[in-house]
Nucleic acid binder design. Structure first.
Lengths: 143, 143
DNA sequence: TTAAGTGCAAAATCTTTGCAAATGT
DNA sequence: ACATTTGCAAAGATTTTGCACTTAA
């Protein structure tokens, strides 16, 4: 869990006004170790207009505060970026694990990603890895 | 380019009727080495209803004839599976390369994917790798 | 005070569903 | 002939846009 103070710093840093709605989004995202979809956010965030949520998420993404990752159904899920992201330089090259049972998307930052060599002629900018399977919680439920 | 005869075999194999519309989809997909989005298909396929296209694509995906991969914008792109796919066992664990300029999605089957070790507790079912950057065609255009 | 942000209504997209007519086997 | 598949119309869902009101700085 990250402090409110840090959220305010984040907003100021990116010249975004400190609003109740934005703080709630940041607080919700920081509370989860998994990426959260727009509909999920909407259902728990309470009294924030759907359109506002869209706009907050896309503003945050542009500024590099959060990153977007698509799950198995192609719906966007959002997670806080590590601190050293900005609009020009996203670092979300960790593995995203999609649980087929609970549908959660885990950001596994701690894993080292292997180097990938592309065929000649391709210029690599960004790599992303994603895995599908069962998360620890759902494995336990099954057995 | 694959032969029409092969498409008919594919359809029969999966108990799908040999229709003009389905053959056209197969032929278009086989003609490209890149995955194609639903809107792109729609624009070149000619006189096939949008709804029919949706249904064809989802039927093909269920049967394991094509696989779906999401591009940078979260829109679904489709590509023919290698021959040994079926509904229970998809093999599309190759790297997908997304060109930021022409938006094409390349299926780079020939690359070996490195093994990934997940944290304890996660059960891996499927891995997928995707890369972003410039494809050979677009690099040449730039310089 | 004033530029940015929010909420509401409405438009524009995208995707799915129901059903009658057409088509493949 | 009969089950599938298609096209059209219409419903649902998702996302975007415009604009007046509100709010943080």
């Amino acid at each position: 869990m990250i402090f409110n103070q840090h959220f305010e710093y984040l907003l100021k840093k990116h010249q975004l006004k400190r609003t109740e709605q934005r703080l709630r989004v940041l607080s919700l995202l920081s509370g989860k170790k998994v990426a959260t979809s727009q509909p999920d956010l909407e259902s728990v965030i309470g009294d924030v207009d759907r359109v506002t949520l869209y706009r907050i998420l896309s503003a945050f993404e542009e500024k590099g505060i959060i990153h977007k990752v698509f799950d198995l159904n192609g719906t966007a899920n959002y997670a806080l970026c590590s601190d050293n992201c900005d609009e020009h330089d996203h670092h979300d090259e960790h593995l995203h694990f999609n649980c087929t049972s609970c549908k959660n998307v885990y950001c596994l930052d701690e894993l080292d990603m292997p180097p990938i060599v592309l065929p000649a002629g391709f210029k690599l900018e960004k790599l992303s890895f994603s895995a599908t399977g069962l998360c620890p919680k759902c494995i336990n439920k099954e057995s």
